[in-house]
Computed example of a mutant assay.
Amino acid sequence: MSLDSVTEDIKEQARARAEEIRSDAEQRAERIVEEAEQEAEEIRRQKESEIERQIEQEREQRLSSGNLEAKQKQLAARRQTLEEVRERVEDALVNLDEETREELTRELIEAAITEFEDVETAEVYGRSDDEALLTSILEEYDSFEYGGETDCLGGVVVESDASRVRIDNTFDSVLEDVWQESLREISDELFEEQ
Rank of each mutant, 00 (worst) to 15 (best):
L108P: 04
E140F: 02
Q80I: 04
V124A: 02
E131P: 04
E139Q: 15
A122F: 08
K71L: 14
L133R: 03
I137K: 02
V94K: 05
D118L: 13
Q74G: 05
T100Y: 07
R101S: 00
Q72G: 06
V124C: 01
L82I: 03
K73W: 07
Q72M: 15
E103Y: 08
T135I: 05
Y125E: 00
D91C: 04
I109W: 01
E102Q: 13
E90L: 08
L104N: 03
A92K: 10
T81N: 11
D118Y: 12
N95A: 14
E99P: 03
R106D: 06
E139M: 10
L138Y: 05
E107K: 15
N95Y: 11
Q80W: 06
R106G: 05
T100L: 13
K71M: 14
E115T: 08
E140Y: 05
L134T: 02
I113N: 04
L75E: 10
V124S: 03
V94G: 01
I137P: 00
E107S: 15
T105L: 07
V89I: 15
V89T: 12
D130G: 07
N67D: 12
R62P: 00
A111R: 15
Q61K: 15
L96D: 00
T100E: 14
E83W: 03
F116E: 02
S64R: 14
R62W: 02
L108C: 02
E83L: 11
E98Y: 08
K71S: 13
F116M: 11
G66C: 08
T114E: 15
N95P: 09
G66P: 01
I113H: 05
Y125Q: 01
L138H: 04
E103K: 14
R86F: 00
E83P: 03
L93V: 07
D91N: 13
E99Y: 12
R78A: 07
I109R: 00
R78Q: 15
A132C: 01
L82S: 04
V94I: 09
G66N: 11
D97P: 05
Y125K: 02
A132N: 10
Q80H: 09
